[in-house]
Protein backbone atom coordinates (compact mmCIF):
# COMPACT_ATOMS: atom_id res chain seq x y z
CA UNK A 1 0.00 0.00 0.00
CA UNK A 2 1.48 3.26 -1.11
CA UNK A 3 0.82 5.15 2.00
CA UNK A 4 3.05 7.15 4.12
CA UNK A 5 2.98 5.54 7.50
CA UNK A 6 3.61 7.99 10.21
CA UNK A 7 6.02 6.48 12.60
CA UNK A 8 4.46 6.25 15.92
CA UNK A 9 6.47 7.73 18.73
CA UNK A 10 9.36 5.70 20.05
CA UNK A 11 8.51 2.82 22.29
CA UNK A 12 5.35 1.87 20.46
CA UNK A 13 4.96 -1.35 18.52
CA UNK A 14 4.62 -0.66 14.83
CA UNK A 15 3.89 -4.18 13.65
CA UNK A 16 0.71 -5.87 14.80
CA UNK A 17 -0.16 -3.02 17.01
CA UNK A 18 -3.11 -3.45 19.27
CA UNK A 19 -4.80 -0.41 17.75
CA UNK A 20 -4.54 -0.01 14.02
CA UNK A 21 -5.91 3.32 12.92
CA UNK A 22 -6.11 4.77 9.47
CA UNK A 23 -6.74 8.39 8.75
CA UNK A 24 -8.04 9.38 5.35
CA UNK A 25 -7.44 12.95 4.29
CA UNK A 26 -7.71 14.88 1.07
CA UNK A 27 -4.58 16.96 0.76
CA UNK A 28 -2.94 19.09 3.37
CA UNK A 29 -5.97 21.09 4.31
CA UNK A 30 -6.46 22.78 7.63
CA UNK A 31 -8.95 20.15 8.56
CA UNK A 32 -6.70 17.24 7.78
CA UNK A 33 -3.76 18.73 9.60
CA UNK A 34 -5.98 19.43 12.57
CA UNK A 35 -7.35 15.93 12.47
CA UNK A 36 -3.90 14.35 12.37
CA UNK A 37 -2.67 16.50 15.23
CA UNK A 38 -5.73 15.76 17.29
CA UNK A 39 -5.41 12.06 16.61
CA UNK A 40 -1.74 11.95 17.52
CA UNK A 41 -2.34 13.75 20.72
CA UNK A 42 -5.23 11.53 21.65
CA UNK A 43 -3.35 8.33 20.90
CA UNK A 44 -0.32 9.44 22.84
CA UNK A 45 -2.54 10.21 25.76
CA UNK A 46 -4.63 7.11 25.84
CA UNK A 47 -3.01 4.47 23.67
CA UNK A 48 0.66 5.19 24.08
CA UNK A 49 2.74 2.38 22.62
CA UNK A 50 -0.21 0.37 21.51
CA UNK A 51 -1.20 2.00 18.28
CA UNK A 52 -0.27 2.46 14.65
CA UNK A 53 -1.52 5.31 12.52
CA UNK A 54 -1.58 5.21 8.76
CA UNK A 55 -2.43 8.37 6.91
CA UNK A 56 -3.84 8.03 3.43
CA UNK A 57 -4.02 11.04 1.21
CA UNK A 58 -6.83 10.44 -1.25
CA UNK A 59 -5.46 13.04 -3.60
CA UNK A 60 -2.47 10.76 -4.03
CA UNK A 61 -4.38 7.50 -3.98
CA UNK A 62 -7.90 8.27 -5.18
CA UNK A 63 -8.61 4.62 -5.90
CA UNK A 64 -8.59 3.87 -2.21
CA UNK A 65 -11.61 6.07 -1.64
CA UNK A 66 -13.97 3.59 -3.24
CA UNK A 67 -12.33 0.53 -1.77
CA UNK A 68 -12.58 1.75 1.77
CA UNK A 69 -15.96 3.39 1.35
CA UNK A 70 -14.73 6.86 2.08
CA UNK A 71 -17.18 9.66 1.66
CA UNK A 72 -16.40 12.40 4.11
CA UNK A 73 -12.93 13.50 5.01
CA UNK A 74 -11.10 13.58 7.26
CA UNK A 75 -12.16 10.12 8.27
CA UNK A 76 -10.61 7.98 10.91
CA UNK A 77 -11.09 4.26 10.51
CA UNK A 78 -10.39 1.78 13.25
CA UNK A 79 -9.24 -1.23 11.29
CA UNK A 80 -8.35 -3.20 14.34
CA UNK A 81 -9.63 -4.27 16.77
CA UNK A 82 -12.75 -5.39 14.94
CA UNK A 83 -15.39 -4.28 14.23
CA UNK A 84 -14.47 -1.46 11.95
CA UNK A 85 -15.44 1.93 13.24
CA UNK A 86 -15.53 5.18 11.43
CA UNK A 87 -15.22 8.68 12.77
CA UNK A 88 -15.56 11.67 10.51
CA UNK A 89 -14.47 15.20 11.23
CA UNK A 90 -11.36 16.91 12.47
CA UNK A 91 -11.46 14.85 15.70
CA UNK A 92 -11.62 18.03 17.74
CA UNK A 93 -13.97 16.55 20.27
CA UNK A 94 -11.76 14.12 22.17
CA UNK A 95 -14.57 12.58 24.14
CA UNK A 96 -16.53 11.66 21.04
CA UNK A 97 -13.46 10.25 19.38
CA UNK A 98 -12.82 8.05 22.36
CA UNK A 99 -16.42 6.91 22.33
CA UNK A 100 -16.22 6.36 18.64
CA UNK A 101 -13.06 4.32 18.91
CA UNK A 102 -14.36 2.62 21.97
CA UNK A 103 -11.20 3.50 23.89
CA UNK A 104 -11.27 3.44 27.63
CA UNK A 105 -9.64 6.64 28.83
CA UNK A 106 -6.48 5.86 30.76
CA UNK A 107 -6.96 8.66 33.17
CA UNK A 108 -10.62 8.97 33.89
CA UNK A 109 -10.07 12.37 35.32
CA UNK A 110 -8.83 13.83 32.07
CA UNK A 111 -12.06 13.17 30.31
Amino acid sequence: MKTKPIKPPAGSVSEAAEWQLRLYVAGQTAKSIAALNNLKQLCETHLAGRYAIEVIDLLVNPQLAAGDQILAVPMLVRKFPEPIRKIIGDLSNEERVLVGLDVQPLRPGVV
Partner: peptide, 11 residues
Protein backbone atom coordinates in the same frame (compact mmCIF):
# COMPACT_ATOMS: atom_id res chain seq x y z
CA UNK B 1 -20.16 6.59 11.75
CA UNK B 2 -19.33 8.97 14.50
CA UNK B 3 -19.06 12.68 13.87
CA UNK B 4 -16.56 14.85 15.59
CA UNK B 5 -15.96 18.33 14.40
CA UNK B 6 -15.63 19.75 10.98
CA UNK B 7 -15.54 17.64 7.87
CA UNK B 8 -16.43 17.76 4.21
CA UNK B 9 -17.36 15.34 1.47
CA UNK B 10 -14.11 15.62 -0.39
CA UNK B 11 -13.92 11.84 -0.27
Amino acid sequence: IEETGDYDLEG
